[in-house]
Design a protein around this nucleic acid. Structure first.
Lengths: 209, 209
DNA sequence: AAGTCTTAAACAAACGTTTGATTGGCTTGT
DNA sequence: ACAAGCCAATCAAACGTTTGTTTAAGACTT
């Protein structure tokens, strides 16, 4: 069921995509190089040839795809809109990017919950924490201008990311909760809208005076 | 660094505890039977002797420790207290049980996010969803008696569990966020209190009219 | 003495990685 | 223009480890 007509230059990227999907589904250790090679339609030696090692492949997935969310947040930071509007747009940005790059987000989440490859964790944390700092800035802004309550800002951020992570990582649980049979409902546009609406309502009630 | 004076009858349980910790830390596939045996101070053949296989050991961890949260929730359900009081006590129950059984909760979370052993996922989901049903009942109760808003109930539950899961699984992220150096701050009693307070404030603002 | 527990050793299978041969396109010297 | 040389890409095969599991003999308990 795989594509045997892969463009030469895209072969490497094709392998990266396949690997991302398999790692997201089964976890790093559970996916063998042979499985990767078979599903990507290449020889297993090519993995080492391209990336040096299995770990090299994994690192490449992370490095090549650290989301470009930062740019969008920084752009948001300098706009002349209300703090609440910034929070609201932050919800849009994160739900869109994490649910659109579902596999990647799951790989990242699982890597963070493991203490196996600390250098990876450090790198991811350093990236994400910069984003968190920006969002925390939005909350503070609202508080200093008197329209937000003084809540537990850090825990509020945890709730924000925790909600999205839960949606990404507990697909089968969500399906039972929503009485849905198919898991890919999570990817649908209407579902994204629902998640956004919920997070906005939640944060508005929590933050706004 | 291991205990060489293990009570005979507790040897099996000791292995279960060690395994739970290692699986939580590194993930199922990344932990070998040899590593398990060494850290538990037993012969590696004992794992198969006790549990038949590595998967058997894993299943035993799950089966022997499906949290007794249900009993506490069901007891809560029949008490004559306000719906909000029930939600508030639910927060206490879940934060206590999940943060006190941190390793177990992490094993469960990771198992759910994987599509490796579907029978395990099914079992876990069926257990948890019963609990969710009870909590959802509390929310409905509040809505029908007119003191709760009609929010997105399912998403609210996702936020509830997502927040606690994020705390359990993203320890290093949280530490950066809180400017803490040591990870075991998460286990401290004062931290538990903080999580509870946050969740209660959040849910109150979200739910109460 | 019987039966349970414990052990070191061995097992096949699967793992990530390396090797050496082969290919095919590109440059180079004439 | 064309053979020679080169280099990156690709492959099947084999490498040495490590994996989970089994075995068969020994030790301990009752």
């Amino acid at each position: 069921m795989q594509d045997f007509h892969i463009e030469k230059t895209d072969k490497r990227q094709h392998l990266l995509n396949i690997a991302e999907g398999l790692f997201a589904k089964y976890g790093y250790e559970a996916v063998s190089i042979r499985q990767l090679a078979t599903e990507a339609g290449i020889n297993l030696a090519m993995v080492s040839y391209y990336f040096g090692s299995k770990e090299g492949l994994f690192a490449a997935i992370i490095e090549n795809k650290i989301p470009r969310t930062r740019d969008r947040l920084e752009q948001l930071a300098v706009e002349h809109i209300s703090p609440w509007e910034k929070i609201s747009r932050t919800v849009d940005i994160y739900v869109d990017s994490m649910l659109s790059n579902r596999n990647f987000s799951r790989v990242i989440t699982r890597e963070m919950s493991t203490q196996q490859r600390p250098e990876n964790v450090k790198m991811i944390v350093s990236q994400i924490s910069k984003n968190l700092e920006i969002v925390r800035g939005f909350i503070r802004e609202g508080q200093e201008s008197g329209i937000f309550r003084y809540v537990d800002n850090e825990m509020t951020l945890v709730t924000f990311f925790g909600t999205i992570s839960a949606i990404l990582n507990s697909g089968s649980m969500i399906c039972v909760l929503l009485d849905e049979s198919q898991e890919d409902i999570i990817m649908s546009e209407s579902y994204k809208t629902r998640v956004k609406q919920h997070l906005k309502a939640l944060l508005q009630a929590h933050l706004m005076k």
